[in-house]
Design a protein around this nucleic acid. Sequence first.
DNA 1: TTATTCCTTGACGGTTTCTTTACACGGTGT
DNA 2: ACACCGTGTAAAGAAACCGTCAAGGAATAA
Lengths: 225, 225
Amino acid sequence: MARTVLLVEDDAKMVNLLRLYLEREGYGVVAAYDGPAALEVAERTRPSLVILDLMLPHLDGMEVCRRLRASSDVPILMLTARVDEVDKLLGLSLGADDYVTKPFSPREVVARVRAILRRTAHERPEKILHHGDLEMDLERHHIRVRGQEVRLTPVEFKLLRAFLESPERAFSRDQLLNAIYPTHEAAVVDRTIDVHVGNLRAKLGDDPNRPRFIATVRGVGYKLL
Amino acid sequence: MARTVLLVEDDAKMVNLLRLYLEREGYGVVAAYDGPAALEVAERTRPSLVILDLMLPHLDGMEVCRRLRASSDVPILMLTARVDEVDKLLGLSLGADDYVTKPFSPREVVARVRAILRRTAHERPEKILHHGDLEMDLERHHIRVRGQEVRLTPVEFKLLRAFLESPERAFSRDQLLNAIYPTHEAAVVDRTIDVHVGNLRAKLGDDPNRPRFIATVRGVGYKLL
DNA sequence: TTATTCCTTGACGGTTTCTTTACACGGTGT
DNA sequence: ACACCGTGTAAAGAAACCGTCAAGGAATAA
């Protein structure tokens, strides 16, 4: 199974470096040096994955990302120059599968490519998420806390799932809303999240002042411990 | 899961120091004093991570790095004496995962080791800002000073983040205000910064007269050392 | 249909955090 | 020495934030 990676990057040195590492790993590599070319090549070669520099001439990375997404669901790995751009990416949720910030090691990029492709190859997400005393069975739609079943509402389930997929990561209320309504269809006040978190905590037996599961990150949002 | 670190360093004092700190953190440590020995030991003990001094007798660090890479994808943390950017990039293109420049504190090295191993553990990178004994994890919204968690308020967090993104740079109070309120929505007296800096210093255990982290630049503002 | 559960919102109060003000202290220059 | 300026810091009021409750409406099940 020859997997092809499309590398969209205007810095030729970087292209060569990444090409070297990717080919050494057995991936086919095609490169495009600006946004329009990227779209054209993607259309023609149908790569298994796209590595996309956020800063590009002619058409910026975010726009390229959007357009790629419009016509296919090819996995996208973003390269960004600065750490604060990550916030934008997260906020915009424009469909990148992962991102790496510069400076990065080629090895890191290759590792990420491998991880993404493995994920999409198996096409089978984890059936059961574990974290501490929490256990979420995605197929059965079933939660256990210290081995005991707990009944959750649909919103609570999605919320907890978001937490379990990235333990310890601090989520903003908006990010959690996106996790609950992936289609942005609802305009909901973000404090609604507080109520759901409160209900979820109650069902998990969590005390907001001494949280064992969901901690408040003041001024930011919440995170799973 | 017992993690073993291979320490490649010809200065015995340094080896002992790092060994002390690493073992205190629960890592197993094996040491090699030159390049050929490093390769031999790496082959035999299969460490989880290699700490590699760039300057070594017999076989220099870069070459060791290349050869290690040829036979495995063990994470490599480089120790380099020169602050030179070129060296850093060169190290990265060799496949090192991270680097620390001398002089460094053992705690700093341990923090990097922890970060790298955590990242390779779940194949997910972390956006972590390091500087000396300071460690800021943006996704977790989590600060460590000398390995110990410190709780910051939102303003303190943003302030420290600005410092960490440009260490050594002297910021005016207005610049720091902009870092705190990116949207210029608030008109705030600039001396407010002094109060926040004071609180931040207290939490970091810093003495204004002998600052180890945040120094006053008289007539200008503040900077991170 | 009715009954029930669930979601969202607005409001209230307790608590934390932010900002301002005021004063103390020390270095600088006159 | 003196006044002056910039900084450190304590205190207090103001503002923001979060947990919680209750109510109305939406969705779901019977």
